[in-house]
Design a protein around this nucleic acid. Structure first.
Length: 706
DNA sequence: GAGCACTGC
């Protein structure tokens, strides 16, 4: 591979090559603050290659997103004049384009985590660059902790570079024993920030007025408007269309108004990449997707509502939520930067500067503090790092004690760890599967009951579930769940329906047209097929029966009630069970702090002659939107629940966590982020026990009645 | 009888 291509682009970072090389030479960890347009993603790896770091190993660069890993690798291969997949390659899920000759490797952080599972010292790498670490994805945060440990073990032959944002560069440096921080300027044009005098009562209305003002008064250039979700986007798009239409002819240029969000079909998403005809201004009304994932060229004006829709998780109830929250300063700056990519721009913030200064957090709350940690904890346990105790694991930002406790409890209930918190052999197999722990456990149990092939399908379908639904357009709603053509889950619930849908697609030879006819998202269904294939490869050696999708005809004839499959789900989702109220169709969750929930209206779960839902159910997810709902529900037998209730009684979080309690030094002060809930084990347990006792009594009464 | 921001193995 050539050391220097004649066509190297003129990027700011190249002026710092000497300084970077010198600093990396002397320090095992270096933080690089690289603004947008600095070229850090494509150039850092090449600088280190020129300095000889690819002689002793691979230079690996992680990216939080698949498309970024692919496109940056392609670019670097081009700049170095080599064929992609040879000296320069990439690895993402389902696609490994590397070879023995690969010296520079771009990969998603998830793939690097997988690699470290089989090679904890990542010995083939001489350099690891964690790019976009300021985005603080769950995987990046785990990697940051692992890197801190790894540089101690491999101090002589590993270099770690972390790229971050201005606002938390020092924090990352502190985390790595005050390692050096290098600033690399970006190549953005100046963006003038225009603040509102006060917060608008309706930011939809305010966005509309601001957009129209730009259209009438400002010179040409596209407008990017950040909204929180599809609903508001649709409303604003239609209002803008009305208003623009009513503008006097000839008073201003033409306009094209485009929505842009994740649930938009890909063919509509790519419309934003088509440049507008002359004398025409585009309005792109977008979610966060335009903040980092998609870059729209031609944007000169940005309107920032100051809000974002963000997922949260409450570990004491197991409940997810989607909340509209103020953006962080980093996010607001990122949004503003979208106006200065091609020439000087303007950003209209629909809030006063005091709100930015005093109310916005510096950085977005990291994902690790907003997610269930069962999967991450199981992952870390399976690494067998004898020098690391999970509850003392060194995170850049620690998750709360309650959140780790929730993860341990769940892992214990599904047999992934024993009562002392040590990983079991079941847990080890689970960690190998690219699934949430409950689904991994379901697969293993299903394997024992001879219904692995069905469980594989359900696991794959649930991995993609949200992207299977068609966009919410009038007339097609309800169709997915209640269409006459699609199976209905035999009244047993959504898991079974998902299984039946995939089986039917299989019987239709994976015909794309069939998906379209049934309003199933093609992209989502193809993803399911890929996931299932990947899961099959991993489970092949362990499988006790066939992995084929198609169940044999004879079996279909004797009216399968999916008992084994539902029993396996019950074991895998032992932490996600609910019991119906005696007199109505509401449920209360078992195992968490008492929580009243309802079956989501989109569910196909059937009722009996009295219109009542089954006594017990397993759910895939609890989510609060307008109210707390169970999403994806499956009927289960009460007798399957009894052993789980017994196990719940035995849960001793103090033992699971190795006697480490919240009050001990080291973890306090860092962990207060969620709604203040008392999650100390001493208080939760008695309450839990009495609740379980009551549930058992109700269960026995019911049994007697029947 | 309600709705889903965005990623990823």
């Amino acid at each position: 591979m050539a050391d220097r291509s004649p066509s190297l682009p003129d990027l700011p970072i190249l002026q710092f090559e000497e300084k970077i090389a010198e600093t990396v030479e002397k320090n095992p960890v270096v933080v690089i603050i690289g603004e947008t347009g600095s070229g850090k993603s494509t150039q850092l790896s090449q600088i280190l290659h020129r300095r000889g770091y690819t002689k002793s190993g691979i230079v690996g660069v992680t990216q939080p997103r698949r498309v970024a890993a692919v496109s940056v690798a392609r670019r670097v291969a081009q700049e170095l004049g080599v064929k992609l997949g040879e000296e320069v390659g990439y690895a993402i899920r389902f696609e490994d384009r590397t070879s023995e000759r690969t010296r520079i490797k771009y990969l998603t952080d998830g793939v690097l985590l997988r690699e470290s599972l089989s090679n904890p010292e990542l010995s083939e790498y001489s350099v690891i660059i964690l790019d976009e670490a300021h985005e603080r994805s769950l995987n990046t945060d785990i990697l940051l902790g692992l890197m801190k440990r790894l540089v101690k073990i491999r101090s002589s032959n590993l270099r770690v570079l972390i790229t971050s944002a201005t606002l938390d560069g020092n924090k990352v440096s502190n985390f790595f024993s005050d390692c050096p921080v290098l600033n690399v300027p970006g190549k953005l044009y100046p963006v003038e920030i225009v603040y509102s005098r006060e917060r608008p009562t309706s930011y939809l209305e305010s966005s509309l007025r601001t957009a129209l003002n730009i259209h009438v008064r400002e010179p040409e250039g596209d407008v990017l408007i950040f909204m929180t979700g599809q609903d508001d986007i649709d409303k604003l798009v239609s209002k803008l269309e009305d208003e623009v239409r009513s503008l006097q002819e000839g008073s201003c240029m033409d306009a094209i108004i485009l929505p842009l969000h994740g649930s938009l079909p890909p063919e509509l998403q790519v419309r934003v990449f088509t440049p507008p005809p002359p004398n025409c201004r585009r309005f792109i009304v977008a979610t966060n997707i335009a903040e980092t994932s998609l870059t729209v060229d031609g944007v000169v004006y940005v309107i920032d509502s100051g809000y974002v829709k963000q997922r949260g998780y409450n570990p004491s109830t197991g409940m997810y939520s989607l909340d509209v929250v103020p953006v962080s300063k980093v996010q607001a700056d990122q949004r503003a930067g979208r106006a200065g990519r091609t020439r000087p721009g303007k950003c209209y913030r629909l809030y006063p500067s005091t709100v930015y200064q005093d109310e916005f957090l510096d950085v977005t709350v990291p994902e690790i503090q907003r997610s269930s940690l069962a999967g991450s904890v199981l992952y870390l346990k399976s690494l067998d790092l004898s020098d690391i105790d999970i509850l003392r694991f060194d995170f850049l930002d620690s998750p709360s004690y309650g959140s780790l406790e929730d993860a341990l409890k769940q892992l214990y209930l599904i047999d992934a760890i024993d009562e002392d918190g040590s990983i079991t052999s079941i847990g080890r197999t689970m960690a190998e599967l690219p699934l949430e722990p409950s689904l991994s456990r379901t697969l293993m149990e299903a394997n024992e009951y001879g219904c692995l092939s069905q469980a594989l399908t359900i696991a794959a379908m649930l991995s993609a579930e949200t992207s299977l639904l068609p966009g919410r357009s009038k007339g097609t709603e309800k169709k997915r769940r209640h269409s006459a053509d699609l199976p209905d889950g035999s009244g047993l619930g959504d898991h079974i329906q998902l299984l039946q849908i995939f089986e039917q697609w299989d019987q239709n030879d994976y015909d794309i047209g069939w998906c379209k006819e049934n309003n199933l998202q093609v992209r989502g269904m193809l993803f399911v097929k890929d996931v299932r294939k990947q899961l099959c490869q991993i489970m092949q050696k362990k499988a006790k029966g066939t992995l084929d999708v198609r169940t044999s005809e004879s079996r279909k004839e004797r009216r399968d009630d999916y008992r084994n499959l539902r029993k396996a789900l019950c074991v895998g989702f032992a932490n996600q069970l609910a019991e119906r109220m005696t007199l109505h169709n509401g449920y209360r969750t078992i195992g968490f702090k008492s929580q009243l929930v309802q079956v989501h209206p989109s569910s196909v779960l059937g009722t009996d002659e009295q219109g009542m839902y089954p006594d017990f159910a397993v759910y895939h997810e609890l989510i609060t939107t307008s109210r707390p709902f169970m999403r994806n529900v499956c009927a289960i037998d009460m007798k399957w629940v009894v052993p789980i209730l017994k196990k719940l009684e035995k849960v001793n979080v103090n033992k699971l966590s190795g006697g480490y309690s919240q009050t001990e030094e080291g973890n306090d002060g860092k962990s207060a982020f969620l709604p203040k809930e008392d999650v100390s084990p001493a208080k939760v347990l008695p309450d839990n026990e009495s609740r379980i006792q009551a549930a058992r009594e109700r269960f026995l009464a019911r049994k007697a009645k029947k």
